[in-house]
Design a protein around this nucleic acid. Sequence first.
DNA 1: TTGTAAGCGTTATCAT
DNA 2: ATGATAACGCTTACAA
Lengths: 329, 329
Amino acid sequence: MTTIEDVAKLTGYSRATVSRVINNYPYVSEEKRRKVLQAMEQLGYVPNSIARQLRTRINETIGVLIPRLSNPFFSKLVDSMESIAAENGFQVIVCQTRSEKSRELLYLNWLKTRQMGGVIMASSENDWDVIKEYRAFGPIIFCNEYPPHTEAPIICLDQHKGGYIGTKHLIERGHTKIAHCYAGSQFTNIRERFTGQKQALEECGLELREEWIFKDAYDTQDGRRIYYEMMALENRPDGVFTSSDEVALGILAEARKNHTKVPEELAVLGFDDQPIAELVYPSISTVHQPVEKMGKAAIELMISLLKGEREPRQQVIELPLHLVIREST
Amino acid sequence: MTTIEDVAKLTGYSRATVSRVINNYPYVSEEKRRKVLQAMEQLGYVPNSIARQLRTRINETIGVLIPRLSNPFFSKLVDSMESIAAENGFQVIVCQTRSEKSRELLYLNWLKTRQMGGVIMASSENDWDVIKEYRAFGPIIFCNEYPPHTEAPIICLDQHKGGYIGTKHLIERGHTKIAHCYAGSQFTNIRERFTGQKQALEECGLELREEWIFKDAYDTQDGRRIYYEMMALENRPDGVFTSSDEVALGILAEARKNHTKVPEELAVLGFDDQPIAELVYPSISTVHQPVEKMGKAAIELMISLLKGEREPRQQVIELPLHLVIREST
DNA sequence: TTGTAAGCGTTATCAT
DNA sequence: ATGATAACGCTTACAA
C-alpha cells in the first residue's frame, strides 16, 4: 500500500506539505503542489480514509434504520437518500431492524463504536428515553416515524391529514361503514392517521366499530387475511382504509377471487401511491406520500449536521400528502 | 469520549492488558479480566472501531453494487445480504450505480480509500480489465451478473436454462411467434437467457424475427411501451418472454386497456417471481429466481474472504431456476 | 510557505 | 502473565 510517506519521499517534501496539497490548503507554492499531484498520480496514491477519520474525528458514514428493505416504501426511501449521500461523498449503511427492539439497539451501538457518524431513524421501536442516550456519539434524526416525546429533528408527513382526507373521500363516495388497518407502529406518529380518520367520521356522525379495526397490516399476505376477517363479520364494512398499497392489493386480490364487487360492495383505499397502485386492476385509489422528498430532506439535514454546519435542534418538518383517486373507490 | 486509556487508569493496569481483555486473549488472570470488564461497564467504554481498523487493517464493511434499490429484485437481494452480514457483525454499504460506468468506478474507488473492505458486484458496467485493477485493495466477487472473461468468484443463476424452459413453455402452450425483451446488460451473462430462448426455438423449428427483439426493458413503463411497439407490427408476436415481472405487468396493463386477450392473443411470461406476480390479474407466469439464496451465498463467501478463511479463486456457483405457471400464459 | 513533531485510539512486538 | 513502546496513516499546532 502506498502512503503519504511514499509521496513525501518521492517528491522530497515533508508529509505535511503533501497533506496540505491533498486537503487543498491555500499556502502551498504552485510548483510543489504540481509536483505532489504528479507524484500521487505516478504512485497511484489515494488517502487512507480510516487514518483520516481517526485523526479528524470526522465520519462520513450514515446509518439508515428501517424495518426491512424489501418493503418498497423503504427501498424507495433509502434509494433517494443514497443518491444524495453519494453525491456528497457520504456512505449509507443499511440497517434492517425487522421491527425488533434488540436489533435496533445493535445498530445504534454502531454509532458508539464509530462505525457510523450519524443515524437516520426511518422507523423506531425503542422509547425516546432509550434512544436519546446515543446522541452523545453522533447526531440522530427521525424520518417518517418517531416515538412520543422525541426531542430531535424530525422530517415526516402529515399523517393526521392523510387519515382525514382518505376517510372523507370514502364517505363522499357514499360509504358509511369504514374499516381501519394499521401496521405495528401504534406508539409513533403514524398513529395520527387513525385520529385523522376518527375526526372525519365524527364530523359526519359515523361510527367506527371496534371490530372494524385491524392490526398487524404490513403486506399483501396481511391484506388477504384481513379480507376474510372482514367478510366473516356480521356487520361488514363497505369501505376500508388500509395502511399501505400492498395491504390494499391483498384485499383486492381476494375480493376478485370471491366476486366481491369493488368499489360498490367494498371500496378499498391504499396508502403510499406506489407504482403498482396504478397498474393493477382495479387500480388503487391511495394517499400519495412524497417519499423521495422526505428522504432528500432527511439526508441533507444529516449531511449538514455531520459537516458541523448546523446544530441538531428539535424541529418538525412536515410534508404534505394528497389523494390520488383511481378505480378501487 | 472514553478510551482504552481511561479503563487502564481506572483499573491501574496497562493499556495492553485492557486490550487483551477486549480481544479475549488467553493469558490474562481471571481477576484482572473481571476488574477490567467491570471498569469498562462502569465507564460505558466501547472500543473505537476506526482506531482498530487502522491498526489491524481489518475492514468489516462490504459494498454492494446494484443499479438501483427501488428495483425489487435488487432490494430483495440486498435485504438477504444485509441480514447475514449484520449477524456476523459486518456492515453493508449500498452503492447505486444507476447503470453508469462512472458511478461504478466511483464506488470501486471506495475500496482504494479503505471505506469498504470488499465489494460484491450484483451488476457491472465496466469491463473486467478495468475492474480487476481494484482487486489489489480488497476482494471483489460477482453475484447475478458478470462481464465476459471475469476471473473472480461468481455466484449466479442458470440464465441459459431460464431462457430455455420459459420459451419451451410458451411453445407448448401453442405459441409460435415469440418475442424477447432484454434489459441493458447485453454484455454480461444475462445475455445467456437469449441464447437459451434461441436454442428452444431452433429445436422446434421456429424463427425469431429481428423486430421481435426489444431492448431497454427494465420496468413497467418499458413494458407499456413495448406493448404498443409489438401491436404496431404487421407480423405481431403471440407470446412474449419478458426480462422481468415488472415489464410483464406493464404489458398486461396495456393489454387489458386495449382488450387484447391474454393469453390467447398474447401470452406474457415474466421473470423473477416477485410477490406481485401472483397477486395481479391475470396472475403472471414467470421464471422463479432464488434471489435470497443467491444473496446469502454471495455474502457468506465475502465474509469468509474478509476473515481470511479463504482465498478468492475463480469459481462459478450456479443456482437453478424453475418455472411457475399462472394465468398469463 | 514549509517542516517538525505530537497526537487520534488501537494492537503487536518485545522484554521481563 | 504483564507492561513499555512502537507502530498504523494521517492532520495540525507550532515554530521557523
